[in-house]
Structure formats: C-alpha cells, structure tokens
Design a protein around this nucleic acid. Sequence first.
DNA 1: CTCGGAACTTGCGTGGTACGCATGTTTGCG
DNA 2: CGCAAACATGCGTACCACGCAAGTTCCGAG
Lengths: 216, 216
Amino acid sequence: MFAYHASSANVYGMSGLREQKKAATRTALSWAAVRLTVERGFSAVKVEDIAAAVGVSPRTYNNYFSSKAEAIAFRHLERSLRLAAEVRDGPPDEPLWEAITRASLRQLEPGPEVEHMPPQQPDEWPAGRQAMWAEPALQAELLRANKIAEKELAAAIADRTGRDPEFDLYSRLVAASVMAANNVALELSVEAGQTEPMESLLPRALRMVATGLPTP
Amino acid sequence: MFAYHASSANVYGMSGLREQKKAATRTALSWAAVRLTVERGFSAVKVEDIAAAVGVSPRTYNNYFSSKAEAIAFRHLERSLRLAAEVRDGPPDEPLWEAITRASLRQLEPGPEVEHMPPQQPDEWPAGRQAMWAEPALQAELLRANKIAEKELAAAIADRTGRDPEFDLYSRLVAASVMAANNVALELSVEAGQTEPMESLLPRALRMVATGLPTP
DNA sequence: CTCGGAACTTGCGTGGTACGCATGTTTGCG
DNA sequence: CGCAAACATGCGTACCACGCAAGTTCCGAG
C-alpha cells in the first residue's frame, strides 16, 4: 500500500538522485519478479531470488513491496495509471470518449522499460505468462491495481467534465466501464482463438459501453 | 482456489449429509472470520482464533480456505454468485436488463445466514466494516470474488441470448458493466454523505450503463 | 567544502501462514 | 454390517512480512 503510493509519486516527480535510484530499484525488482515468475512459476520463485537478481537484500525487497504478488502487479499498475494520466493530461477540448479511446490504445504500446527485455526462451514466454495470470494470488493483486487506477481515472474524468470527483455517479460509472472494456478486450485477445487485433477490438468495446448495451 | 470451486458446487447441489456438513462448516468459518475481523481488525485475528470460534482445528481451517482473506471474501463470493444464478434461473421471457436489475436488487436482501447475526456492539459494526474493506489484502480478494462471479454472469447472459459464452464480446461486456455498476453503487452508498438509497441508486446506475454513457 | 541530519539499506529476530504427509475417525453405500 | 472413500487432525517444514537497531549514503545549509 505504501509502496503503491510512493511509486505513483515517483512516476510524476522524481527530482533528486535519491528518488531516481529508488524508482530504478523498484522497477528492477518488479521486472525481475515478473521474469522469474514467468520462467519458473510463481511458487518456485522465492523472495530471496528476486532480491538476489537485482542485487539487494531480501529485507530491502520488503521495503519496496509488501508481498510477492505486489511486486509482480506493480508494472501492471504503472501501465493502468498511465491511462488515467493520459486522459487527465490530454488536450482539454478533445471529446471525452476520444480521449479515453486514445489513452486506452496508448496502453498497448510497450513502456520504456522493454529495452531490458531478457527473455532467454521467447517461445516459452506466452505459456509462462498465461500460467502467471492463472495464479489466484496474482489475479487478486492485479485486480486491485486496476481498481486503484480506476479511482484515478474517475478523478480525471470528473476534472474534465467539471464535477465533484467524490460523489459523482457518472464519473465513476464511466471509469469503471472503461476499465471493464479494457479488461474484457485484453482477456479476449489473450485467449487462444481470437483473431481480431486489439487495435480494433478495444475501440469497438469502448464504443459499445459508451453508446449503450441494449439487448441485441 | 479449490475452496472456491468446491463451494460453488455446494451452493447448488448438496445432497448427502456429508456435503451439508461441509457447507455448514465453511459458512461458519467464513462468518466467524468476518465477525472477528470487524470486531478486532484484520491483523489482530489469527487463523487459530477463527478455527477456535467454530470448533475445528487450525489445520482444518486451511482445508477449507487457503488464506485468511479468502475466508472473509467467501460470503461476498456467495452473494455475487447468487446474482448470476438469479439471472440464469429467472423467467426466460423476461427482458435481459429487467432480469439483471431484479437480480441485482435481490442481492441487497440479507442472505439466509443472518439469523446467526451476533454483533455484540451493533453501533461499532459500521466502523469495523469500513476498516475491513480498507485492508489491501481484503480488497484484492473481494475483487477476485467479483471476477469469478462476473464469469458466471457472462455465461448466464450468453445462455439467455443464445450466444457462445466463450468468445462473445457482448456477453462479457454486459457482465463486466453490470458488476461495475453494482460496485460503484455500493461504494457510493457506503461512503458517508450519500443519501440516496440503494433501491433507487442501483437501478439508476444499471440504466445508465444499459443505455450508454455519452458526455453530458 | 564540509558537516549534520534525513533517508535508505541491511541483518537479525519474531510471529504467523500455508501446506505436505501420515494417522485416526466419520460417512455413505453395497 | 463392513469396507472404501472422504474428512479431520497433529506434526513438521519452508516461507513470508515486518519491527527494531545499526551502519551507510545522500542532500543541502552554512
């Protein structure tokens, strides 16, 4: 919880050398956690391994993340928070749903950390990735990351439309529905047998929730 | 994970005396976990306490639930699964969104287990309840329960509308949006300062996601 | 430049959790 | 009635989260 808040602060303002180092360590830990989990499986990865892979003590690991799942979900959280930030910082005259669609599509682009991409067996990556998502403890933490981002998104939407972010039903419903559309599109595209690319599936889903879901 | 699946089986078919006892024990454990957590706070409750309150060994507790959070979230899961079941088992000629609204409102009614209601200090209950929901580990597990129910709901909707529950975008979007509306309405009503009762807030939210969310 | 305090890292110790395994007990069914 | 499967339990193990105190690094004021 603390780690989450501290991190979101780092995403925006990291002035000193100290904070840059902290952000780098947190990112490295999260990335190592993901990589090792995909390679070996969740329960086969010890906290000690993750810490060792980054070169810090296990105790330090727990200063950044309060659980194994949180470390893995951190990258997902950052991506989701970028969506909210994109909506907030986009051109103010842009129609709301255009901003949302643009921001959602932006999430698909790989972040700036993929340069460290070290999958030694890229062909084994998808299977491990799928196994990772199937882990209950992971699912729970990823959903929590989504909800944190949803709260930010609701605030951004309330800002844009000049509403009280605290008590407004519309902002919250839009935020929740947008996250839902994103998740549904992602799940569908991950599952085998789906041919439609995210670039068209995601806007389609967003248009559906925006215009309504009458019984067909 | 196993506990969740076994339980959903019990909700529907529990024929033998054996299965009834199992269901009773699981419900008792879950209820004890909730009660103790509300009274004392999450981290102040040991697994040992929950097991002792029900009269089983700590080891048996872990045969039913694989974590403290899972036990607490179990009641929430059951309620959410009832929503999906209501939609599935409602009159087939009922319009989809009417069925959804009816099923959602049905969730608000207290389940059949409230007869065991033992809050000794009912005035302290709301505060403890709110503290419980604020616990990160709990949030994560509750969200996972929601997602499990969402999957069931999507299947029920696909059934009703004669679609393939596996690859259909519409069913999943409706299910996800309905859960989102339920959650948003619940959150708003729980937070202080909200005067509108759930009985009108929830249908309003559902109508909004059903008919669309254009920029106001 | 340098020095003092704040922030960060680390090792140690503690309490708690999850679960495999083996054993005794209960239940359902032929 | 009696057996096989399911279940409860105790024990032991590995792991994890975190408080505390000591050492180390960084930043900025003087």
